[in-house]
Simulated assay, not measured.
Amino acid sequence: MVMGRTAQSISRFFSLRKKKQKEKKKQNDWAFPEELCRRFTLAEITAATQCFDQTLCIDKGGYSTVYKGRIKVHGDEDGKDVAIKRFSEDSIEGMCAFREKVLLLCQLRHPNIISLIGFCQTNGERIFVYDYMPNGSLSDYLFDPSNIKNKHPFPLTWKQRLKICIGAARAIHYLHAGIKHAVIHRDVKCSNVLLDQNLVPKLSGFELSKMGPPVLSNVLIKLNSRVSGTVGYLDPEYAMSEQLTEKSDVFSFGVVLLEVLCAKSVSRERFERGKRVWTFPAMIDPFLMGKVAPDCLKKFMNITVRCQRRTGAERPTMGEVQVELECALELQESADAVKQLKELGTSASTSLAPPPPAHDMEDYTYENISLSEIKNHL
């Protein structure tokens, strides 16, 4: 009798051990596109971050820490600078969700989306390895110039800001309409727009993103989803209905556009102070005052307002936003060209003198612009 119970216990022990081994093997053996994404060992990640040295920490969030590291990617001897994102144990990224994100990010190939180089998933660790962006994020330049990683921490010019907005819009439009299954980012904000060495924007922060059904023309994607996102950027319609659509990203992007113009964290001020009165032109970043051509400013503000309309049905698509931002840039360049020619013609210098740079030109004026619409909207 006793021997029978002992035999059963031994049998159960080996059965459980075998089951755990199977589960562990299943965790490690899963298909992913090896040609697009590399699986790093924990030893490689530890070496790249000098055992997760805090002096290499470049960003820290509620559920993850990002380190700057150097790692060998394609057998190169010197290695490559990378950003290593390590998720905490209590992260919302479970193992299954982590794998889904790996498979998703491997498929995203766009010049304005951060590239996933590889990942590490072992011993409970969940780590992404991305291209390193030496110029930090758009929020660094707008809200915290002292944190700018560039050697020359000057404010971004208006044309630089427009080009960054256009690149980010192209990335979101690609997610919504440029791949087989549409993706809703769900966390579009300035800190998730990273800048490379040439200030080319790279959209990042895909931890909350959701994949929808196959892309169909003129069909609004609707996903039932627990409300997640960043306060201030969060689409109020989504927050009320818990029904996520691509227009939720459009709303968030509208907040980004406003912050680009004002160089203020509009999202934070909305949360902390509630509704506030905006005055024009005091709302514009002082560095941009008089540098934005009136027609360009009107076009830009029109896009910003329409992106943040109350319902998704009233908002434009990201494709339309991209086109209108490109139009705003053309209006700015045309106005600058005309102004340069006028100033060159009135200059005491000869016609051989080069046109003055945009930042040295006479300021634009905004006497005939009324922004009551946006003041009421905000």
Rank of each mutant, 00 (worst) to 15 (best):
G205C: 05
R39P: 05
E100K: 14
T41V: 02
T317V: 00
M133R: 10
V305Q: 14
V305C: 12
G290R: 07
S334W: 03
V277C: 07
A239K: 12
I114V: 13
Y132P: 03
R109V: 09
E330Y: 04
M133S: 13
F40P: 06
G62Y: 10
C165E: 02
D336K: 03
M301L: 15
L352W: 06
H110M: 00
K20T: 13
I284R: 12
S115G: 06
S351K: 14
G229P: 14
C307E: 05
K247V: 04
E34D: 02
K26T: 06
S372Q: 15
M3Q: 15
S349G: 09
L261V: 08
V277K: 15
D285V: 04
Y238L: 06
H173R: 08
F119P: 02
H110Q: 01
C262V: 02
D90Y: 12
P355T: 05
T317R: 00
A313Y: 12
Q107P: 06
G94P: 03
E35C: 04
G229T: 10
I221P: 04
G118N: 01
R126I: 00
M301T: 10
A328D: 04
S204Y: 00
C307Y: 08
R270C: 12
A239N: 11
E93A: 09
S217I: 09
Y233W: 09
A171W: 01
S347K: 11
A282Q: 13
L261N: 03
A168Q: 11
D295G: 08
L297N: 06
E320V: 09
S217G: 05
M95K: 15
S15E: 13
A348D: 13
F253D: 07
K80F: 09
S252V: 02
G4I: 13
V292A: 01
M95W: 14
L378Y: 07
G124N: 11
F52Q: 03
E272P: 14
V73M: 10
V321G: 02
V73F: 10
E44N: 03
R126A: 00
I184C: 05
T304I: 03
A293G: 05
R5G: 05
K25G: 01
S217Y: 08
I221T: 13
C262R: 11
P213E: 10
C262E: 02
H181C: 09
P294K: 10
L156W: 01
L103I: 13
V215Q: 01
R38N: 11
A7Q: 11
I148F: 11
E246L: 11
S139D: 15
L162E: 05
M211Q: 12
T346F: 13
N368D: 10
C51V: 09
H359E: 13
A7Y: 12
D29G: 07
K72C: 11
W278S: 09
R310V: 14
E373V: 07
F98L: 01
V255N: 04
F32I: 05
K275M: 00
L105D: 08
V188T: 09
I369E: 11
R12P: 02
N368H: 06
R126T: 00
L341P: 11
L104Y: 02
L223D: 03
L56W: 14
